[in-house]
Amino acid sequence: MPPTLPLLKGTLDVLVLKALTWEPMHGFEITTWLEAQSRGSLDVDEGALYHALHRLEERGFIGSEWRLTENNRRARYYKLLPAGRTHLRTEGANLERYARALTTILGVKPS
């Protein structure tokens, strides 16, 4: 298994928003969802994740509430708000363009 990748600055917010487009999740679910979707190549640090959640909530992109899990435990669930959806659209598109540009440049072979 190759070593996991550190997250680039600013990308975590977009990834968290993306995760929440499926359904409201609690923090650990978001971690596992991101790890699973990246097939294990991303390692999400707890500190960075919750800090991002606070930031997103402050900016009105997500909301949160306490709910019970299937195992009847209290957990804080995060939910995407309309403003967050808009943010995800624009910032997600930017990131994608950026990633494409990187791939193109790095894919160039010396002629």
């Binding site: 609690h26 923090g27 650990f28 707890e46 919750y50 009105g60 909301g63 949160s64 509430e65 306490w66 435990r73 209290r74 957990a75 804080r76 939910k79 708000l81 309309p82 403003a83």
Partner: peptide, 29 residues
């Protein structure tokens, strides 16, 4: 777009909430 947890808004409540959230996170991990 009202938050669905209005929260109690006090620092004490915020601290307790954060600790509970992290404890839950640890258990899940």
């Amino acid at each position: 777009k009202r938050h669905f947890d209005l929260g109690k808004g006090t620092p004490e409540a915020a601290r307790a909430d954060m600790n509970e959230e992290l404890a839950f996170h640890v258990d899940e991990r």
